[in-house]
């Protein structure tokens, strides 16, 4: 099946005062369980190439994998799309004696990449979050509201962000980001910081 996979917007792209790209198919596994359990921590490390269970509102990365803190009992494990079913099965196997649940949700969401110096501003226009360089840093993930829908945001580099939303609202979020990144609409609020 994996060769038939298409992402929500088939790689839509827009060049405004930042570059906006739909990131394509991304493997995602929702994992719920008790973070303090040693078995749980070991299972996460094994399936995520060594990326450990992140602290509150943090995201850890290793190789092609990332582990994001979603709530006190929920993690989102990201990996190459084709590997997600096997990794979800491996997690379920490793956690068979635990009160935990691992589900492959790779096709549930849409993923966007923002690249460019104005990325903080593009997001700050849309979310009720302080995106000032001192307030939002790499390694942090923020689940929030993007205009009318839920989204999660984290930094993939000093000037680049990744945005995740539900697939059903992918076109809406792309439109939002596109409008927010429209050339000429720069506010420059973070330019001096």
């Amino acid at each position: 099946m994996s060769d038939h996979v298409t992402s929500a917007l088939a790689g839509a792209a827009f060049d405004g005062f930042v570059q906006l790209r739909e990131a394509g198919a991304c493997g995602m596994i929702t994992l719920r369980g008790d973070f303090s359990s040693a078995v749980f921590q070991k299972a996460v490390g094994e399936v995520a190439e060594g990326a450990g269970v992140p602290k509150t509102r943090q995201i850890t990365t290793a190789g092609d994998s990332a582990v994001a803190w979603m709530s006190p009992d929920e993690l989102l494990i990201m990996c190459p799309h084709a590997e997600a079913p096997a990794r979800a099965a491996a997690l379920a196997q490793a956690l068979s004696g635990e009160h935990a649940l691992a589900v492959n949700v790779s096709d549930a969401r849409a993923v966007f990449d923002l690249t460019g110096a104005g990325s903080r501003e593009v997001l700050a226009k849309l979310c009720p979050v302080d995106f000032a360089p001192g307030a939002f840093k790499q390694g942090e993930i923020r689940r929030t509201r993007m205009a009318q829908v839920a989204a999660a945001v984290w930094m993939t580099g000093p000037d680049s962000f990744r945005v995740v939303c539900f697939r059903s609202v992918a076109a809406y979020v792309f439109g939002l980001l596109q409008a927010s990144a429209q050339p000429g609409s720069e506010v420059g609020v973070f330019a001096d910081t």
Binding site: T56, P128, T144
Partner: peptide, 12 residues
């Protein structure tokens, strides 16, 4: 109190 986020009302 669960994630420590200080957010404005529309996020809740």
């Amino acid at each position: 109190p669960y994630c420590g986020v200080t957010g404005e009302e529309t996020e809740f």
